[in-house]
Amino acid sequence: MSDLFYNAAPQETRVAPPRKTARDYPTSKPRTVYLFGTCVVDLFFPEAGMDAIHLLEREGINVDFPQGQSCCGQPAYTSGYTEQAREVARAQIDLFKGGWPVVVTSGSCAGMFREHYPDLFKDEPETLAKVQNLAERTYELAEFLLHVCKVQLADQGEPLQVALHTSCSARREMNTHVHARALLAQLSHVERVDHDHESECCGFGGTFSVRMPDISGAMVADKTQAIQASGAQQVVSADSGCLLNINGAFEKQNIPLLGQHLASFLWQRTQSKQEPRA
């Protein structure tokens, strides 16, 4: 949910860990996966969660969505509330037992599972073992579609120019911008256009946008104006927190653009007439 790892923490400042070396991917698709939908998708972009399920099921994969899932704990963690973050994290860990992969509809939340849970529980050996197992099974949605499913997308839409936005933590920790670019490149009628400030934060940053609204507002203004100047007809992102911030800024500035979650964009662009949307 959060873009930034330098929020003004009451107890300690969180710093993103160095990116690990490239991971090894399974040589075949699993029969079943867990889906972690994230709280922002659940509350504001439920269609993105459903479209992620459609994409996975079309690849012949069964999707299990544990009903008890909630937040990954990132807002508390990045704000320095370690004990509260552990409490939230423990509730998630217990839901994703076994060996199934965990596919996450947000790169920043996937990064929380994969990169930061081990730090949260480094002093609890029994829990740490579970966390390390979960981390190795965690994939961001675009990463999973590209490298595990080895999906081949057939574009069914009209010619379109799109701008891609990737949250800061998703970019640093999960390389999500690379995966999303590769999937968009498979769409024969979609042209991805570059825009200034592409690698910069949109200003959301979870609690950062609440604590420093003036700075956050200036950052998202730069972002949205750069996207508009690129000539893009639509915005795509795999992180819903960023989409909330960017779409709100578009509306406030009367910019006739709208951001859409990558899962929904891919599903709609590749849906055949025989696949009515649920």
Rank of each mutant, 00 (worst) to 15 (best):
Val40Pro: 01
Pro276Ser: 13
Met174Ile: 06
Phe96Ser: 02
Phe204Cys: 05
Gln268Tyr: 12
Ala238Thr: 11
Ser70Gly: 13
Lys273Tyr: 11
Glu251Tyr: 14
Pro276Lys: 06
Ala170Lys: 07
Phe44Val: 10
Leu43Glu: 10
Ser237Tyr: 00
Asp119Arg: 13
Ala8Trp: 01
Tyr6Asp: 09
Pro18Tyr: 09
Gln274Asp: 14
Val190Asn: 00
Asp196Met: 12
Cys72Asp: 04
Ala238His: 11
Asp123Ile: 02
Arg172Tyr: 13
Arg90His: 04
Trp267Ile: 13
Lys122Pro: 09
Leu262Pro: 01
Leu164Gly: 02
Phe36Gln: 03
Phe36His: 07
Ala163Pro: 06
Val220Cys: 05
Thr78Pro: 09
Arg31Trp: 12
Phe36Pro: 07
Met219Gly: 04
Leu160Trp: 04
Lys273Gly: 02
Phe121Ala: 00
Ile227Trp: 00
Tyr139Ser: 12
Leu43Trp: 11
Phe208Trp: 03
Ile215Met: 13
Ala89Val: 02
Met112Val: 08
Asp222Gln: 09
Gln225Arg: 14
Ser2Ala: 14
Asp3Pro: 04
Ile53Ser: 04
Ser2Arg: 12
Thr13Cys: 14
Leu257Glu: 00
Gln152Ile: 13
Ala129Asn: 11
Glu12Leu: 14
Lys122Tyr: 05
Leu120Ala: 02
Cys201Lys: 02
Pro256Leu: 05
Gly206Ile: 01
Ala263Arg: 05
His179Tyr: 13
Ala22Leu: 15
Glu275Lys: 10
His195Cys: 06
Gln260Lys: 11
Leu35His: 04
Glu158Arg: 11
Thr32Gly: 09
Met174Arg: 03
Arg86Ala: 03
Gln11Cys: 12
Ser199Lys: 14
Asn245Pro: 06
Phe113Tyr: 06
Arg23Met: 10
Met50Asn: 15
Asn245Arg: 13
Glu126Phe: 12
Leu266Val: 03
Gly205Gln: 01
Arg19Gln: 13
Phe36Cys: 14
Ser70Pro: 09
